[in-house]
Design a protein around this nucleic acid. Structure first.
Length: 489
RNA sequence: GGCGUCAUGGCCGAGCGGUCAGGCAGAGGUCUGCAAAACCUCGUACAGCGGUUCGAUUCCGCUUGACGCCUCCA
């Protein structure tokens, strides 16, 4: 298989030709959610970005093992490896088992990701199910001399690591600056340096989630889960690691340090990071309290939302921007996306009705190639979509008799257009093909035939009445020279 | 303070050293009994000031502004 895809590698800060370690196999690891709260727009962006990558890699013919974790333990509430575990805290507050909390939000995450047509990963490992692997990884780092035990906890020795390697190479951090810039906080006496991070934490008495380890009864640090689980399922070296840009530092930097410390080599060959969603120009953040959950999008119940939005509108909205750009949310932008998507989906329907002619009046190969090249160029979905709009325009023109398409072109275009729209971009039309849908088809056909007769008898009062009543019900009537069409608006 | 990113027409959002982004909104037209849809036409946008260049929205510098990471975050 010819490598055609180029992706932006955060490590080199350049676009690089993507060549997997063992083609056609591709190992892809993406940081998934910490399941202690309702999934929000930010989760959607990350999931959609890497869903697109997953879909496109498969489209190119790769066999992808896509691992996306669920963090259900070890992710601490506050600064500097101190404070509560997020899930443990929520469990205490709501008087639930921690695993109940994790399950609740994992279910919600799955529900909303399904609605966004985000494919489930190949493997979805949980941190709590891989305590042993994390303990082993921690032990290995200790054995190599890059960590130390302190008061029942194990910390990564960044300074020691820095002697042999470069801590900060991914994020462009400098250890001396970290030393002078990192805030000094209370309760850090267990760490030699403020920038050291926990591999294992001894559990405080009130801590619910705890496991036995060689060092103490406790729980693993947050960063170690990704190193342990990616190595388990993808090997000590694998192709792509993705995640939100906010995970760049410290999370991914720590992952690199852990892998290098444990295995002597970096695990990841291509680092990919999706950018943030902003609301009124500001990042959506838990601490800022300005995040909008996907549930709120579905219901429209949020002060910032003018209406409810279909999950496909959100997906399309995100695909209209490049994944490495910040994307600013606004109702106007969402509404524009809603209409644009409807146009594209309508064209996909119209495509099925086209009749071939002698020759094509437009070079379809060029447009299709442009789409392909856009996706090959670091997943440039905005350009790919722009070309799909061009093709839609052409489809509509053929339908109106203002352009022509050859039989060969039609035979190629029809499956290609569907594949790109539905399988690669992962867009989805409402499934109107069920039983009720068929009944509706028949009823509308009958009604519109009556209307046509009324029109032919110049009984416009009746024909308008039918059209207006249908419009009020959300059925849009479109007259044609040779009859009529309708669609649900 | 350190590191980094970005400033594009009413809105969203691509892109590039010199011929088109695209969507939404808006104007005019074709079609229609009237509409809607569709199609056609229409906006010298590229923060400011300098510099490099035959030529810069695109490269360099400065200024201004916005944002991100450095603390939990997708």
């Amino acid at each position: 298989m010819e490598p055609s895809l180029r992706i932006y590698n955060t490590m080199s800060r350049k676009k690089e030709v993507f060549e997997p370690l063992n083609p056609p196999l591709v190992g892809l690891y993406v940081c998934g959610p910490t399941v202690y709260g309702e999934p929000h727009l930010g989760h959607a962006r990350s999931a959609i970005t890497f869903d697109l990558l997953f879909r496109y890699l498969r489209h190119l013919g790769y066999k992808v093992r896509y691992v996306r974790n669920i963090t259900d333990v070890g992710h601490l509430e506050s600064d500097a490896d101190e404070g509560d575990d997020k899930i443990g805290k929520k469990a205490r507050l709501e008087q639930l088992e921690p695993m109940e909390v994790a399950q609740l939000y994992q279910n919600s995450y799955h529900f909303h990701m399904d609605a966004l047509n985000v494919l489930r990963p190949s493997i979805e490992p949980k941190a709590s199910g891989h305590i042993q692997e994390q303990i082993e990884k921690t032990q290995r780092i200790l054995d190599k001399g890059y960590a130390y035990v302190s008061g029942g906890s194990v910390y990564f020795d960044v300074e020691r690591y820095q002697q042999d390697h470069h801590y900060g190479k991914l994020s462009g951090r400098d250890i001396d600056e970290l030393r002078s810039n990192t805030r000094q906080l209370d309760g850090q006496d267990l760490k030699r340096n403020s920038f050291d991070f926990a591999l294992w934490k001894q559990a405080a008495p009130e801590h619910i989630m705890r496991w036995n380890s060689p060092w103490s009864q406790g729980f693993p640090g947050w960063h170690i889960e990704c190193s342990a689980m990616s190595a388990k399922y993808l090997g000590e070296r694998f192709d792509i690691h993705g995640g939100g840009l906010d995970l760049l530092f410290p999370h991914h930097e720590c992952e690199i340090a852990q892998s290098v410390a444990a295995n002597g080599q970096e695990a990841v060959r291509y680092w990919m990071h999706n950018n943030m969603i902003t609301i009124n120009g500001q990042k959506m953040g838990k601490s800022l309290g300005n995040f909008i959950t996907l549930e709120q999008f579905a219901t429209g119940e949020h002060p910032a939302l003018a209406q409810a939005y279909d999950p496909m509108t959100i997906r399309f909205f995100m695909l209209q921007a490049h994944y490495r750009s910040t994307l600013d949310f606004s109702n106007e932008a969402l509404q524009a996306a809603e209409k644009g998507l409807a146009r594209l989906l309508a064209a996909a329907q119209t495509l099925r009705k086209l009749r071939p002619a002698e020759r094509s009046s437009q070079d379809l190969q060029a447009l299709r190639l442009a789409c392909q090249q856009a996706l090959d160029d670091d997943l440039n979905t905005p350009i790919a979509i722009a070309n799909l709009f061009e093709i839609s325009k052409f489809i509509n023109s053929v339908h109106n008799g203002q352009a022509t398409i050859s039989a060969e072109d039609l035979a190629e275009l029809a499956p290609w257009f569907d594949t790109l729209l539905f399988e690669v971009l992962g867009l989805r039309a409402e499934n109107a093909a069920d039983h009720k849908g068929k009944v509706l088809d028949g009823v509308l056909d009958l009604l519109l035939r009556l209307r046509l007769e009324a029109k032919q008898n110049r009984d416009f009062a009746t024909s308008d009445r039918i059209r207006d009543a249908l419009a009020a019900l959300g059925v849009q009537v479109k007259d044609r020279k040779d009859g009529f069409e309708w669609e649900l608006s």
